[in-house]
Design a protein around this nucleic acid. Structure first.
Lengths: 220, 220
DNA sequence: ACCTGAACACCGTTCAAGT
DNA sequence: ACCTGAACACCGTTCAAGT
């Protein structure tokens, strides 16, 4: 007789366990390696088993994204709302960059999850307290959120390309500049030869947005 | 003997022909249907034939994106740089929305192609003429570009979801609001019940950016 | 030089069947 | 209720072989 409660019993599958396994696969194999089969293997289970807990891969990805936001806690000064918003953007950026390929999990726009909601609530509180109308606060948040996500995808891509050596895109750009048909572009490229300041560029865009947000506060 | 120049001769394959076929497939089947096999079928050719003209699917996608930008011509007033930048963003948005799934072609950041370069040159000219330093102009352009792309992906997704009926995300949002744990979020959702103004929201974000750009112009 | 045929090594997902 | 085995209908890509 086989024991009904085997000692090596791997715990029964649950959505949380699946998400945790997916997180490990993502960190180890990257976004391209995040397949249903790989997640199943991580759990020592067959791929179709996952479909009992998630309707499809998209749903798993969304849950995974939310899961990876669980340990993001904004640390704010609470003196100037502009600084607070900026700090949140910066901390979100760092958080996303520190975990492999997280930003790629969200092909489509904003969505809802328990952890995400907590962050959104905090951001909206600050914006509304700063004087923005609720509707404007909503616009501002989603705009800022999109900015950070898009930025992180670009930045991760950049460091990946630098790691693998030459760009391929850079060469093409050089070639086109050499034609002399793009004087302004050439000028801009030239100003980047020092290497470009990633932190500075991120701050630039974010501060642009914040400056725009500030204009929405009605005069009192 | 078979004639050496068959009358029904489909012209020999070329990168341009492949890209044109890919454009048709994208418009007809959408991004998900854009497979090497489908493009090949459009050309009445076997899939591996494409690999003679493009090293891989990514390269084809990039070429396709650039191709789809060929018939975008910015129409500008040339009086106020802010208005011109805004108009370009608006026209780019409309252009992207009018062609199915174009914005999805660019998973990674900016890249280079002949048509793209022409547009970049025009944008940079305006920004530099407005008084931005070349480096700032470069930052501004890529920030604005990312904004529009991300926006369009979100907007296309939105109309797609509306077309298919209920959201699934909306329901979840409602449920979370009902918990009462997210008062600000609830407030924001409430202010959108009128339906939300897509054009207005796009303009909002873009104007935020432009306001930020303006702050970079040194005082004279 | 340019394309076909056949195959490799995968995918997400479904579904009957087991326990 | 929860998972396996086997399969379906695909993918991108490689490569020997044809012309």
């Amino acid at each position: 007789m086989v024991s009904r409660v085997p000692s090596k019993a791997r715990p029964q599958l649950s959505p949380d366990l699946v998400v945790a396994a997916a997180a490990q696969v993502l960190e180890r194999e990257g976004f391209e390696g995040l397949t249903m089969r790989a997640v199943a293997a991580q759990l020592q289970v067959q791929a179709p088993a996952l479909y009992w807990h998630f309707p499809n891969k998209d749903a798993l990805q969304v849950a995974l994204y939310d899961h990876l936001m669980a340990d993001l806690v904004f640390e704010l000064q609470g003196r100037d709302w502009r600084k607070d918003i900026f700090d949140m953007a910066q901390q979100l950026r760092r958080h996303l960059l520190a975990r492999r390929d997280v930003a790629l999990l969200l092909p489509h726009g904003f969505f809802v999850g328990p952890n995400i909601m907590g962050h959104a609530e905090k951001i909206l509180a600050i914006l509304i307290r700063a004087g923005l109308a609720p509707k404007d606060a909503g616009y501002a948040m989603s705009t800022g959120f999109s900015y950070v996500i898009t930025w992180v995808i670009g930045e991760a891509d950049l460091v990946a390309r630098r790691a693998t050596g030459h760009d391929g895109n850079d060469e093409l750009a050089q070639a086109m500049v050499a034609t002399g048909a793009y004087p302004h572009f050439a000028q801009v490229i030239g100003s980047f030869e020092a290497g470009g300041d990633v932190d500075g560029q991120f701050a630039f865009g974010m501060n642009c947005l914040i400056a725009g947000f500030a204009q929405l506060i009605p005069e009192r």
